[in-house]
């Protein structure tokens, strides 16, 4: 076991050395940790750094009301047609067709445009269940359905900060992936690198923009806006360093999954009840 570990450490450091050689002039300032989350937080560090944040989404509780999307738009002035968080509706029919939609990111809920139609006449489809309200054509009876809230996964092995050429995007010592909008050059490499579609280029600021887990709230002892407004408690947020926190208990007892685990991004946004068909 130890040998294996040593070997892995050797390969890692050898890989780093090789990468360093390739980047001819690459001499990072001494003392800078390569992976920020490995930093030891000193005694004089402000207490707002003495946390390690983690997010948990219980898909079995989400009702798809879109309150989180609306709250996020208000709290963070997210530009129209872009989303820091969004809600997807999954409907799987008996013939194994997966219908996914997220009209306006779930901002307005999932009611059809023409509510009057829904209120005056409920035309029952095929099997008699009232599902003629979605925007997708269904070929058969929906046997399985659920909502999946999505957002930045604040990965440990971040593909997006890895590619930022100017160190504008980084992971804070308390585990939040942030974008320094005064340094960002707007190359959108990070947008390409994110496998979850969590990033976008702000149409007015022309810099990368994304979910910050409401960094201005959590560092003041508040919860992220989307967690605050969730009526069913589907969204949970907490501090891993707080041994008595609810999230710690949930993380250690529930069966968890993450999005696209095969990419080894090590998301710190965990899911309960995530179906394998979720993209």
């Amino acid at each position: 076991m130890d040998k294996k570990k040593n070997r892995r450490a050797f390969i890692k450091s050898a890989g780093r050395a090789l990468a360093g050689l390739l980047m001819v002039v690459a001499i990072p300032k001494p003392g800078r940790a390569q992976r920020i989350h490995e930093i030891e937080i000193g005694e004089d560090a402000p207490d707002w750094l003495d946390h390690y944040w983690v997010y948990l989404i219980d898909t079995t509780k989400c009702i798809g009301c879109g309150a989180c999307v609306r709250a996020d738009k208000r709290e963070n002035s997210v530009p129209p047609k872009f989303f820091r968080t969004w809600v997807e509706r999954y409907q799987i029919t008996e013939d194994n067709h997966v219908h996914v939609d997220s009209p306006n990111g779930g901002h307005d809920g999932f009611l059809p445009e023409d509510l009057a139609q829904l209120l005056t006449s409920v035309e029952l489809e095929t099997d008699g269940s009232p599902q003629g309200i979605g925007r997708v054509k269904k070929q058969g009876r929906v046997t399985k359905g659920f909502f999946v809230p999505k957002m930045c996964n604040h990965c440990r092995n971040t593909p997006c900060t890895q590619v930022c050429p100017v160190n504008a995007s980084y992971q804070s010592p308390d585990g939040v992936v942030l974008v320094d909008k005064t340094r960002c050059i707007g190359c959108s490499y990070c947008v390409q690198a994110c496998p979850y579609g969590s990033r976008y280029i702000h149409p007015e600021k022309h810099t990368a923009d994304k979910c910050t887990w409401c960094y201005h709230r959590i560092t003041k002892g508040l919860l992220p806006a989307c967690v605050t407004v969730c009526p069913t408690g589907a969204r949970k947020f907490g501090d891993l360093k707080d041994q008595s926190s609810e999230i710690k208990k949930l993380l250690s007892t529930q069966r968890l999954n993450v999005l696209k685990p095969e990419l080894n991004t090590e998301p710190f946004c965990f899911y309960i009840g995530l179906e394998q068909s979720v993209r």
């Binding site: 990072p28 300032k29 800078r32 940790a33 920020i36 930093i39 707002w48 750094l49 709250a71 208000r74 709290e75 160190n167 504008a168 980084y170 992971q171 804070s172 010592p173 942030l178 320094d180 005064t182 340094r183 910050t212 409401c214 960094y215 201005h216 709230r217 560092t219 003041k220 508040l222 806006a225 605050t228 407004v229």
Partner: peptide, 27 residues
């Protein structure tokens, strides 16, 4: 930038800037 490298490979002052914003949802 002066605070670059304070907490890692980024401009350290940005953390404080990001924190400074006032919350809108107050409970």
């Amino acid at each position: 930038p002066e605070s670059f490298g304070q907490y890692g490979d980024f401009r350290g002052a940005h953390l404080a800037e990001e924190r400074a914003r006032d919350p809108i949802h107050r409970g």
